[in-house]
Amino acid sequence: MNESKQVLILIRTCPYGMASAGEGFRAIIGLAGMEIDTHAVLVDDGVLVALKGQLPDALGMHKLEDAFSQLSDFGAKLYVHEPSLTERGLSADDCIPAEVLTDDKLRELISQVDHVITFN
């Protein structure tokens, strides 16, 4: 195999309504588990994935807040897009620990990776 690529996974949808965030999580740990530098970025409605206080038990679904809180254990890094939070009346304080990205910081991160893979 060639030297490892750097991959940015973009999660763009709200959790639970669509499986995208959960399936994106599986992709992130799959990549990180293979020693790929994996950056998980929550943008648009995807920022809801990081919101604290999720109670999906009544839906019979796994709590994505907990799953994404554990990303660093798998060697992946979590980021949240600040303008997407602001648009939704949220702030980093409402979220699980994640690096906050402005548009400039997100642009810079994109410029450092080989692939951007989207879960929308």
Binding site: S4, K5, H115, I117
Partner: peptide, 18 residues
């Protein structure tokens, strides 16, 4: 997912359709 990771590594371009 091991194969997905292998593809991410060996591909020069990567497109996602969701």
């Amino acid at each position: 997912m091991v194969v997905f990771a292998k593809y991410a590594n060996e591909c020069d371009r990567f497109l996602s359709f969701g």
